[in-house]
Design a protein around this nucleic acid. Structure first.
Lengths: 250, 250
DNA sequence: CGAATAGTGTCTATTAGACACTATTGC
DNA sequence: GCAATAGTGTCTAATAGACACTATTCG
């Protein structure tokens, strides 16, 4: 009754073409930014069937000799209109892989989803092309093509969780930023208000989370007292984590 | 200089077969268990080239109408020799997808890796077959085939992290377990000793982490005072998290 | 001046960690 | 008794959260 254990990957004999099904493999990107105290996501409008006219996450096929990460980085550069150098520095994080048969009505497509966190950028748009693209407030990103509603929800969850125990929030900020701007990232992604003095204390108490930038000061939002500028530190993980208030299932 | 934005997934015209490369898609499983206070992983010995004779993570190709999760669950049932009913209840967690070109010398293979957490099971082995399979202490799982060393390391990291903020540790335990057994899971996965009274206090203070089982008592390891038995609760996330001692980069 | 943001200090309730002590079982 | 594990209690240092207060800038 038990199937015998089989070694990994091995097709019955020397790559028997019948032993596996060919799949198309794509990447899908949930590119987030914080703009006007709202979390925005980059969407493109589909110009082809299926789901013609619907909004979707940007993405595309893996090229023959390209890893999923490389494909994601290439797509990100294309969609945001940033040159390779800039886009190469952006934070990209593999989320999950979606493989339900039937998630694409045309054919069997397995998609590796990535989340990207970018500072507030100019509107995407290189050549004025058929497909439109633009930043959409997360609350209005609904009824996307394919299973992209779910991918986007998963991406939001993951980013929110990662802010707790990594220094990821700095990826939403420009190279130099104020603590007020950093706090706004947390408040926007989590949708809660944080106590400023306590936030400040915790951030500064975490080694390598942020380091002071030399010289400058800047006003957050153009008003009030200018704040000291910081740069992202080397900390990958925050110890202790910066836990969000309240319970697990709001 | 900028490529124009393109809508997701769309091949240039109606599924142009040249627009994408066909890939083989597999799942690889890192199946963990705690046995004799050591973390063990299930490995199979390869009977074919490449890497003939080397140990590898169990896994296999996706079937035509099967999701990666379904394939992983099927492989898990096959490799552990558990019937579908039992295996269906086991904890499976998608880890990451590995897609480097050249990770398999034969052809382009994209692999979705899963971690599975199972209680201490009898030795795998259904029919006495060519390929051997067995539980290996994690420390001795070295020089695996393909990129499985890396997958296994990533899996261990992820499981360790998930113990902090989810109730996952109960997946390593039988349906009814003592707090001593649960603590042993944490100590084994993290490789640290925990203070028993404090561990107990935190676990019991977390709502829905564990619930008392009716009636029974049992000795952890056959010695000492019999302990009250608990069952896994409904808590998916632990609030507050059960953080592991010490710093981020040991 | 008032609005707005930055930055500092402080008080208190809670929590984490250390650890002493008792309880129950098998041998 | 001794070894081994379960279970309880308690002390103290550290932390989190609330919040009062001062500082600096613009208009």
């Amino acid at each position: 009754m038990n199937a015998p254990p089989r070694a990994g990957h091995v097709a019955p004999e020397g790559y028997d073409p019948g032993a596996f099904e060919p799949f198309a493999v794509t990447v899908d990107l949930a590119v987030f930014t914080v703009r006007d105290a709202l979390l925005h996501v980059l969407l493109v409008q589909r110009g082809e069937e299926p789901y013609r006219g619907r909004w979707a996450l940007p993405g595309g096929f893996l090229r023959p000799r390209e890893s999923a990460e490389a494909a994601a980085r290439r797509e990100l550069a294309e969609e945001t209109g940033l040159g390779g150098g800039t886009a190469g520095a952006l934070h990209l994080e593999q989320l999950a892989t979606y493989s339900d048969p039937g998630r694409d009505p045309r054919m069997r497509v397995v998609s590796v989803a990535y989340a990207a966190l970018v500072p507030d950028l100019p509107e995407p748009r290189g050549g004025g092309d058929a497909a439109r693209a633009g930043w959409t407030p997360l609350a209005q990103a609904r009824r996307l093509a394919f299973d992209h509603d779910r991918i986007l929800a998963d991406a939001h969850d993951r980013v929110g969780a990662k802010l707790e125990y990594t220094g990821l929030a700095t990826a939403f900020c420009p190279p130099e930023f104020t603590l007020g701007e950093l706090q706004q990232v947390y408040e926007t992604v989590w949708g809660v208000a944080l106590d400023r003095p306590n936030f400040r204390r915790k951030v500064l108490a975490t080694p390598e989370f942020v380091t002071p930038a030399r010289g400058g000061r800047r006003r957050t939002g153009g008003r009030g007292k200018p704040a000291v500028l910081y740069r992202a530190g080397d900390a990958a993980a925050l110890h202790p984590p910066l836990l969000r208030p309240e319970g697990p299932t709001p």
